[in-house]
Design a protein around this nucleic acid. Sequence first.
DNA 1: CACTGAGGTTAATGACTGTTAACCTCGCGG
DNA 2: CCGCGAGGTTAACAGTCATTAACCTCAGTG
Lengths: 182, 182
Amino acid sequence: MTTRQEQILDTAATLFAERGFHGVTVHDIGEACGISGPALYKHFSGKADLLRQSLVSISDRLLDEGTRRRDAADDASSALDALIDWHVDFALSHPALIVVQEREWSSLDAEARERVRRTQLAYIDVWVQVVRELRPELDRATARAAVQAAFGLLNSTPHSARLSAPAMRSLLARMARSALLG
Amino acid sequence: MTTRQEQILDTAATLFAERGFHGVTVHDIGEACGISGPALYKHFSGKADLLRQSLVSISDRLLDEGTRRRDAADDASSALDALIDWHVDFALSHPALIVVQEREWSSLDAEARERVRRTQLAYIDVWVQVVRELRPELDRATARAAVQAAFGLLNSTPHSARLSAPAMRSLLARMARSALLG
DNA sequence: CACTGAGGTTAATGACTGTTAACCTCGCGG
DNA sequence: CCGCGAGGTTAACAGTCATTAACCTCAGTG
């Protein structure tokens, strides 16, 4: 069962992804949930709170599960596969969340932005360690840029998406692997 | 010499890229240009006009120069190189423009949105033809998804960018080629 | 049964924003 | 020297938005 709070957070994330944080009104969010504007304040402290909770939970989830899968892998090569699979799965099943965490962090207040940025950097670092084990000739900065480019590739799903999910999954995974390993 | 109009368009695009169309006020744009809010209306018909002109000019420029370079190439392989070089050059020298054309088309009115969308699709198609010549086993839809994934990779520049421009250029170009050619 | 707190409602409020109006200034062609 | 248009200015306006206030309903409990 999904609670009203979860429903509101999901709905808000979807709308933020479509039209941007400032392009969505609390009335829009309420309406999409079947309640009306000010009712949101029974569950959240304000519109900014919706974005904050979305972004914190998304970035935590990416980092936690990413770390878990890397640690469970036997070697660097299968760790990379596991990371790619995880990220592409997440992007395909939650396109709105991927879009929001990619774009809307600049609408956060300073404190939350710092918190989210740190988590995102830690997630990038999980990837960077694996990539540098496979390609020791890359320095830290280059590896980081390469990983962020791979994210751009994997996160392109929401903007194209005319393929079946399995086809998209395998296309993106293959492309990401080629891009990162040369 | 850059005219006042060009200065305003550039400034607006940069702010739109940073905070999104709805997150920027006409006062912000004017202030960043050294004039004040309503003065913009001496040069443009309104805030929406700024976004429209930015997006139309960006998408036209990508398509025109992309077509030119592909047509000037001897074979498919060098055509792909030329397209990659062009796109990565553009993304590196105009990060704000790339971000705006990627994100803010949804803030356009229906007519302009349709116009820009068509141009973007034509640009994608230029790439798709080249890619399918090099990888005839790909169907149209798969090739299109692959090209959009490559755009995501190349357009990641504005979000990472801790490398020198030449290093970034060659990193992204190599990654895009590997991703597209497997 | 009384009552209370959770979760709604609509109306009001104050801040902000895009746009327009009214006015100023000054370089320049006749 | 005069007029005027280009490109500024500030003030005013109407609309929208986030947030708060005041009020309603009702399931569940002492």
